[in-house]
Nucleic acid binder design. Structure first.
Length: 275
DNA sequence: CTTTACACCTGACTGC
DNA sequence: TGCAGTCAGGTGTAAA
């Protein structure tokens, strides 16, 4: 489920409730997520004040003085702020209490995780990550230099975290549609004009999605229990056989790198003009 | 080095 | 109504 906009929506939703608050209690009901929850290390943080709620790529970082909790939502994870009376639901796996404010994690598929580490920047999951797509480091020039020698399909590269982080299947498909680029186009064949367009549409798409509270497919709710509204804006994702909003051609569906990839065969031609 | 296949896990949906 | 098969927003690891 969650790509960068959903994680950022989550961060903004929970931060006002827990930032600068003291962690008072932790409950781990199911420690067996993608990685086992280090229960001891989590309990060690009880009594400490949460210093900041940050996001890096699709990871949420809860920073305390001595260590940081890294949270990943996997495919189906979500965080909510709940009250003391809230019943535990099926697939609610853990909860952090900040006084009477409870941060509760729900994840049917259990692909997410909660781990602790002393220096986040050095952590194996974080250290190899590429730039944030909404930062200055992610420029058209950066894209150009990184893609010039690659032969992999552009869509695969957009979803490669070492190149740029936070872009998952939905936003890769949507950005490529807006830029008029076929998802199978080999990276090195992209023209400077196409790269510039793509760069702009990646940022615009992510910004728009964040502004609308992320996408809601299936059961994504932001921490206040509200759905995201970006799904209503999707041009191609999940729209196989349906008419393209721009030209009416039925949207097609390909498998690229094991992921289904939606695109408009008319608006996103392969090898336009050949070269 | 790149590319693929698989692994983790549950639930929703399709077709017989 | 049931059952088997397929698919799903992620990503680290192993194999080819």
């Amino acid at each position: 489920m969650p790509e960068l906009p959903e994680v950022e929506t989550t961060r903004r939703g929970i931060a006002p409730y827990i930032d600068q608050q003291q962690l008072t209690h932790a409950i781990i009901r199911q420690a067996r997520l993608r990685y086992p929850i280090p229960v001891e290390q989590v309990n060690c943080l009880i009594g400490q004040v949460l210093v900041s709620v940050e996001r890096r790529a699709k990871y949420l970082l809860l920073k305390f003085n001595t260590s940081t909790l890294i949270i990943h939502l996997g495919m189906s994870g979500s965080l909510r702020i709940v009250s003391q009376e809230a019943e535990w639901r099926k697939h609610d796996h853990w909860q952090l209490a900040f006084g009477s404010v409870l941060l509760r994690y729900h994840d049917p598929r259990r692909f997410g995780f909660l781990i602790a580490c002393d220096s986040v920047e050095q952590h194996g999951l974080i250290i190899k990550l590429g730039p944030e797509p909404l930062s200055d480091a992610f420029s058209t020039q950066y894209l150009q230099s990184k893609l010039a020698k690659r032969r992999a399909p552009i869509k695969t590269s957009l979803m490669n975290n070492e190149l740029v982080v936070g872009i998952g299947n939905i936003y890769a498909c949507e950005s490529l549609f807006l830029a008029g680029i076929h998802p199978l186009t080999p990276c090195h064949q992209l023209t400077p004009t196409q790269l510039c367009l793509l760069h702009g549409h990646i940022q615009a798409t992510l910004n728009r999605a964040i502004a609308q509270g992320g996408s809601t497919l299936r059961d994504f709710l932001n921490p206040d229990g509200q759905p995201g509204y970006f799904a209503q804006t999707l041009n191609v994702y999940g729209r196989a056989q349906q008419p393209c909003h721009q030209c009416g051609t039925p949207i097609d569906n390909l498998r690229i790198g094991g992921r289904s990839s939606y695109y408009c065969p008319q608006c996103q031609p392969l090898n336009p003009g050949k070269q």
